Simulated scan of single mutants.
Amino acid sequence: MSSPFFRTLLTAIIAAAVAVGVLFAASTWWAPLRAPWVLIVVGGIALVLGVMAGILGSYDLARLRGWLLLVIDNSWALPSTLLGAVVGNLVYPFFGTPSGVQSAGKEWVSYRARGTSGFGADVLQTIGTVNIGGAGNHERVHLLQARILGPLYLPIVGISYVVMTLLQCVWSLTIGLVLRLAGVRDTAWFRAPARSAVSGFWGWIYFATPMELWAYGTEP
C-alpha cells in the first residue's frame, strides 16, 4: 500500500466490518450479540485498533499474509484482540509509546518502553495483538497462541492461572510449610526457574501455566 492514508482507512474498515460480521454470525447461537450497543462497542474498538494498526503499518496489505492475519485477528481471535485493544491501550501508554519500528509488518501494535528498565523494558507483555517491549524471547509466541486457539485462548489462560494458584497455595500451606519449618527448603512455595520474567510466590504460578511453558519452550 503506497498511501499511508489509504492503508489506514482500509485496515480500519476491514477490522470493524469483520468484527461486526462475526458478531452477526455468532448471534444465531446467542441473540444478544446482535444488540445494537454490542455491535457499536465492538465495531468501535476494532475500528480504533484498526486505525492504530494502519498508521503503524502493522499489516502488510501488499501480501496475502497481511490480509489473512487481519481477518483472523478480528474473527477467530476476536476475543483476545478486543481484550488487548482495551487493556493494552489503556495501560501501555503510561509506560511507552506506539512504535512504528516494532509494529510495521509485524501484524501487531507494539509500544516502545520510555525507560531502559522496568515494565516494557525488562518485562514484556502481549495481550491479543497489542504488545509492549517488542518481540523479546517469546512474545510473538503468545500472538501465535491466540491465533491458533482463537476463542479458547483466554479461557485456557484464565483456568490455568486459577489451577496453578490453587496448587501453589495448597502446597505452600501444607507440605511446603512443613519442609520450610524443618529447614529442608528456604521457601514454602514452588519457585520458578531463574529465567522466568516473574519471581517470588507468583513466579511459579506464572511460569507453570501451559501458555508460558509453551512460550519459554521456544527459547534457545
Rank of each mutant, 00 (worst) to 15 (best):
A182D: 14
R195M: 08
H142L: 10
S196H: 03
A104Q: 15
V178S: 10
I148A: 09
I175V: 14
H142D: 06
T81G: 09
A192L: 09
S196T: 08
D186S: 13
V71C: 06
V91F: 06
R34P: 00
T116C: 04
L143R: 09
L143G: 12
W108C: 05
L70M: 07
F119Y: 13
A16M: 11
G105I: 10
T11N: 07
S103A: 09
A182S: 12
I72R: 13
L33H: 08
Y59D: 02
I159A: 14
D60P: 02
I13N: 02
T165Q: 07
A17Q: 09
W171C: 02
L33W: 08
F95V: 05
F201W: 15
V109M: 01
A135Y: 04
A17I: 14
F119T: 07
T218F: 11
A53W: 05
S27G: 14
A215F: 00
R34T: 07
Y59E: 04
V20Y: 02
G118V: 09
V130W: 00
A62H: 08
V101Q: 12
A46N: 06
G150V: 10
W67K: 00
W67P: 00
V42N: 03
R180Q: 13
L90M: 15
G50I: 01
T126V: 14
G158K: 06
G183F: 07
E139N: 15
A16I: 01
L9D: 05
M211W: 07
G115P: 01
L68C: 08
P220M: 05
P98H: 01
T174Q: 06
V18A: 03
G134N: 06
V162S: 10
V18W: 00
W204R: 10
I72E: 10
V178W: 09
S199L: 04
T11C: 09
L179Y: 05
S80W: 07
F190T: 05
Q145K: 03
R185C: 04
L49H: 13
F201M: 09
L10P: 00
D60M: 03
S117T: 15
